[in-house]
Design a protein around this nucleic acid. Structure first.
Lengths: 340, 340
DNA sequence: CTGAAAGCGCTTACAG
DNA sequence: CTGAAAGCGCTTACAG
């Protein structure tokens, strides 16, 4: 490893025979500098391969151009799409994005948000995440605008989400319409508004139809949770076993499906199954999975849009009015819940 | 939004009646300051809720504590596990991590690496990514240590990977042992060493057994590529159609599986299928998918370890010796390639 | 149009 | 043990 010193604006200035202020101007206000000088500077930048130090830029300017994107689980395809929708829009506006993954663990979640704060990101998009009020409050106190994804109770922030109560309802209504009278909802953690809302919707539908609804709590929205919930359900006496199961997301549903099949139960003949998110894998599962679809990319894009607007308002010294965008989910029926 | 000024070390110093140097010391060298003073400062930090500005810290110290993790596709469960293995190890050492997603697009890939450079991250772990030599070279010139994941040809960097040639070979040998004489390899882009190596291994096995191997190139390692490759293959005249297909990763294989089934072909009766990565979904696919397993988390963890060592060497002024760690993949046989 | 100077929020020798 | 000062790499008025 060579011992060449690290490049700074100073080096460019020297090579081009100008002051660093002029280098800064060709980077930030090119029109302000004489074409000939500008060319000389650009030439020096190219030959040296210099690139402005963002940390210094942000420190001096008092604001960075980086947005923090926090999600509960990058391995969940739902979040991946959300991230991409958001990133695409941010990029158009010249913002960089840094992704933080909570790995389904509340402790990591706090760490991610704290790290965003310590990095002094310009704003945060908080994907579905338990989002301990304490840390969210800390972001607010640090004056870091935050857009909440998928949490209806906006409170003091812009919000984008889908109507999860409606989503839960259509899932349960569908199972009921297929003749099921004994339902189950599998999901968790209940610290997530999404989980509570989806269950709530399912409960509403069950009550309206006077059907039973068993609630099975699991620690996280992943495969493993689905498998262990399946163990629980397959061990129930047949007359207590639900025949229609609605899972809070597709990962749980796919884990559940594996567990049911492993225990010798047939889907949908013995147990019908509905998931949530309609990720690509849903259609490719052992038994193609019915699922409640959300406009994933759109959610991310809208979240970015709201944040961009808020930042623009702040930069412009305007009063900012928080907004809430709500999408309506829709049911995609496949074999896992087809009438037999 | 209140107009309170942003908090700085200065505010803490004033509240605690000390100089900012002392505040810095309680943060970085607590032993150096008198317990009574230390307490006063810590109290001020707590009541104000101040947190050091990492940009300023990094700028002053000349080095950040953030590592950039670049992957081709966060939506691919393989990468998610890789990231987590790496992050867990980095966290132990007090390094923060920032994730960059290339979204399977070469252009984004360049942007991710450039952004890491502009952010002046301390080091980079480059997950499988086409990794245009130009940008990698730029990192090197910027003296940002880089660990390459899954690229055998280390060159001027530490490297961790699996023996993909061996992986390709065992996949193809397995298909051959099941009686298949007409094979196909589906993968791309060939700018990826992984893809080339897996194909190479398959070719070796095919040649040794005097079996045919059709190579189908696809643009990226995802679902969609698998589906379109399936269209291509199902349209071949029956006598030219391969009966054993090895896909460069599980996402392609699952897309392929869907396409084959949609076209009325039976797996494994008409076509046997083997994927690569052994992601969770492999076992949960319509027909459980045989796959070549890699130690995903371990790969990430080892990459982090190598980077940590390299940084320690640099900090200690020691000569650094690049290392290469190679894991051996193993085949997991499931229904998609079972003898019928 | 260009340069000199101040300062963003920190850390790090160096005095005292 | 604590403080004053210099400086990391930039941007931004302000002179000239």
């Amino acid at each position: 490893m060579s011992t060449q010193p690290r490049l700074s604006m100073r080096d460019v200035a020297e090579m081009a025979n100008v002051s660093i202020g002029t280098v800064s101007n060709v980077v930030n206000n090119p029109a302000r500098v004489l074409p000939a000088t500008r060319e000389r500077v650009l030439e020096a930048i190219r030959t040296l391969g210099w690139t402005p130090n963002q940390q210094a830029q942000a420190l001096r300017a008092g604001r960075s151009r980086t947005i923090g994107l926090a999600v509960m689980d990058v391995a969940n395809p739902f979040f991946a799409d959300l991230l991409r929708g958001a990133q695409a829009r941010l990029e158009e506006e010249g913002y960089g994005a840094t992704i933080g993954d909570a790995d389904n663990r509340p402790a990591r979640e706090e760490a991610v948000l704290r790290s965003f704060r310590d990095q002094r990101v310009r704003g945060v998009i908080l994907g579905p995440i338990a989002a301990l009020p304490r840390e969210v409050e800390a972001l607010h106190k640090a004056r870091i605008p935050t857009v909440l994804v998928d949490r209806a109770e906006g409170g003091d922030a812009c919000t984008v989400g889908v109507d999860d109560v409606a989503g839960g309802r259509i899932a349960a209504e569908h199972l009921i319409s297929q003749g099921h009278r004994s339902l189950a909802f599998v999901g968790g953690p209940t610290t997530l508004a999404q989980v509570r809302d989806r269950r709530e919707g399912a409960e509403q539908a069950a009550e309206a139809a006077e059907a039973n609804l068993l609630a099975v709590s699991v620690p996280s929205l992943d495969f493993t949770s689905g498998r262990s919930a399946a163990e629980h359900i397959t061990m129930l006496p047949v007359d207590e076993r639900p025949t229609g199961i609605f899972c809070a997301n597709d990962l749980i549903a796919i884990g559940m499906l594996q567990g049911l099949v492993a225990a010798g139960l047939r889907v949908p003949q013995d147990v019908a199954l509905v998931g949530y998110d309609d990720i690509d894998f849903a259609a490719a599962a052992t038994v193609p999975l019915s699922s409640v679809a959300q406009p994933r990319r759109e959610l991310g894009r809208s979240a970015a849009e709201l944040l961009i607007q808020e930042l623009a308002d702040i930069d412009g010294g305007l009063e900012h009015q928080h907004r809430t965008i709500t999408y309506t989910p829709s049911l995609v029926v496949r074999a896992s819940s087809a009438r037999v």
